[in-house]
């Protein structure tokens, strides 16, 4: 689907679409949407939250990862209408009171990106991963971040950043010593 086509469909959606209420980054939106609008297109084209990226648009790259009721998902494969009533958190909604989320801080400190295109998805995915609580080792982080591809190959530093953020959380949000940039 071309971008022009996406925009046309979003705009024609308004007239007779489905009534949908979503809370995005704490802000409530009452919308009328055509059922074929994906959560990703809604965020980017309608709500102008362009932090969430469209990579493959087929659930294969993870660039569109957001948190739906706190759970990480590929927003490109979610029809927005089906998430009526949900709370969505995107990369724009992670900072609190002007302070970056610990995972965002860790990505900067560990230099966990190069071009940055996959980064919002990586960060949202990492926040979801930490909340899930199933990763305890670098190996487990790698496995449970496998849904987020990085074509620059920043994986080593991404794993280090997540380890750093997990360590900080384990120490009750105390600031941790800087990582060694592995």
């Amino acid at each position: 689907m071309s971008d022009t086509e996406t925009l046309t469909r979003l705009s024609t959606a308004d007239a007779d679409g489905e009534s949908v209420t979503l809370t995005v980054n704490g802000e409530r939106h009452a919308l009328r949407l055509a059922p074929w609008v994906t959560l990703l297109d809604l965020l980017r084209e309608r709500l102008h939250l362009t932090g969430t990226k469209k990579g493959c648009d087929h659930g294969q790259c993870g660039a569109c990862t957001v948190l739906v009721d706190g759970v990480r998902m590929n927003s490109c494969l979610q029809l927005a209408v089906m998430r009526d009533g949900c709370e969505i958190t995107t990369v724009e909604g992670l900072a609190e009171g002007g302070r970056l989320h610990p995972v965002q801080e860790a990505f900067i400190e560990q230099d966990a990106f190069q071009c940055g295109y996959c980064t919002p998805g990586q960060i949202c995915s990492a926040v979801g991963l930490i909340r899930e609580g199933h990763a305890h080792t670098a190996e487990e982080i790698r496995e449970l971040m496998s849904g987020n591809l990085c074509r620059c190959g920043a994986y080593t530093n991404i794993v280090a950043a997540i380890e750093q953020a997990m360590g900080e959380q384990a120490m009750g949000e105390q600031p941790a010593a800087r990582g060694d940039g592995r």
Binding site: V71, R72, N74, L77, G128, L144, M145, S146, G147, N148
Partner: peptide, 9 residues
């Protein structure tokens, strides 16, 4: 199978 994001959905 799949990825954590896909398994969550």
């Amino acid at each position: 199978g799949a990825s954590p994001q896909l398994r969550n959905a």
